[in-house]
Amino acid sequence: MTDRTAHPDPVTDRLDHTLAAIWHGADLVRLETVPVPPLGPGDVLVQVRLATVCGSDRHTVSGRRVQPCPSVLGHETVGEIVAFGAGGARAVDGQELRLGQRIIWSVTLPCGTCDRCTAGITAKCHTVRKAGHESWDSSWGLSGGYARHVLLPAGMPIAAVDDALPDALAAPAACATATVMAVTERATPMAGKRVVVVGAGMLGLTAVAAAATAGARSVTAVDPDAERRALAERFGATDVRPTMPTTEPFDVLLEFSGSSAALQEGLRTLDVQGVAVLAGAVLPDAPVALAPEAVVRRHLSVVGVHNYEPRHLTAALDFLARTRDRFPWQDLVADPVPLEQIGDLLLAPPGTKPRYSIAPR
């Protein structure tokens, strides 16, 4: 197997092949030299600098989650632009993108014209395509970050990364951090509120930091793992618990564990005008009982968030830039390993840090 590394033209792509880790089902991931399609107008070709391993990809390989196969997985990625299609491209904030610029991009690629897109719910576009979730045999085979290059089709929401932000902070911003920005937006202002965060993985720890930064009166983190509870304290939690406290009232519940039992207990603790935002229940679990009378009498709000909008990409990067020196973000991502080891990472048990990472170069 060879790896061809021709230099691309800045406008018309001349890099004809790259190396990608293609998932063929079950635990079979093969490194393959694959063609790079010609760039159309508005397309962007990116060389991957770092990709982190999201739990959803691990769920895919373990059989807990269904996705097209074969495919190139990976959707938490930071890279640098090496070529443009005709007309170039712009970031979500309107700035013109340039060669060599570090960027992150959205998990979702919406059509931009359906009723959901025009209503501002592009994450639920009727024909949405997703980075790292497309079939290799589709028109967007080179969509995932577990490769040396990714092709970003025209219309993909892109955000430029500030030079001061390390790759290990920028890559998770494309999924975990941006999702938390969407969650906290739905939670209404948290200043002065009593917040409980259920699940202290990558998203939960980010949410703890977001609540603390927003000026919450208290931030309680709930997770059965002692190491994660200790991390939560370093990210701003004022209290940590192995299980959901049942005697304390909360104003905001942010749920990232996907545990129906924990959610059930958490809903009971919401005070008057309490808000519950659910983001962790992405796999089937037991139903949760919700008493309508409690919702009515306590003026409760229960909402769900899945993925995020383009504005949350820039919000994620801004949040990380503001808090880079306040919280130990570097402790959440393991040191990168070569692309050749991605198959092992997808099957490995959880590590001491919430995210594994690979550096294809």
Rank of each mutant, 00 (worst) to 15 (best):
H59S: 09
D27W: 07
G42S: 14
V305F: 03
E293M: 14
C69V: 13
G236S: 08
V198K: 00
P350L: 10
L142C: 04
F235W: 07
H24C: 02
D3M: 12
L263F: 08
V183T: 05
A182P: 00
R186C: 02
A173S: 13
A6Q: 14
V240W: 03
A212Y: 05
D137E: 10
R322W: 04
L39T: 10
A26E: 07
Q273V: 02
V29F: 06
V82I: 15
L283S: 12
L203M: 15
L97D: 05
V197Y: 00
F84P: 11
V150F: 09
A262M: 12
D285K: 09
R326P: 00
G40W: 10
A316W: 09
P242N: 06
R355L: 12
V66G: 04
A230C: 05
P310R: 02
G87Y: 13
R326C: 04
D137H: 11
L263S: 01
P224H: 03
V208E: 04
P41N: 13
V288W: 06
L45P: 01
I358T: 10
L99K: 01
V195E: 04
D137A: 12
L254T: 06
L317T: 05
V44D: 10
L300E: 01
V333H: 00
V222S: 03
G87P: 04
V277A: 13
A211P: 05
W105M: 03
L283G: 12
G258N: 10
A321S: 15
T2K: 13
D115A: 08
V150Y: 03
F256H: 05
H7Q: 14
F250K: 00
P157G: 09
A216G: 11
A262W: 02
D239T: 14
P189T: 14
E185H: 09
W105G: 03
P242G: 07
D167N: 08
R268G: 15
T184V: 15
V302I: 15
G199V: 10
G199M: 12
P70V: 01
V305D: 05
A174G: 13
A261C: 02
R234L: 08
P354A: 14
G132T: 08
T238A: 08
P328R: 08
S71E: 01
Q67W: 02
E227F: 06
R4E: 13
C54G: 12
T238V: 05
R194Y: 07
A164Q: 13
S62E: 13
A232G: 02
V277Y: 11
E32D: 12
A210E: 07
V275F: 02
P8C: 09
A210G: 06
A174E: 00
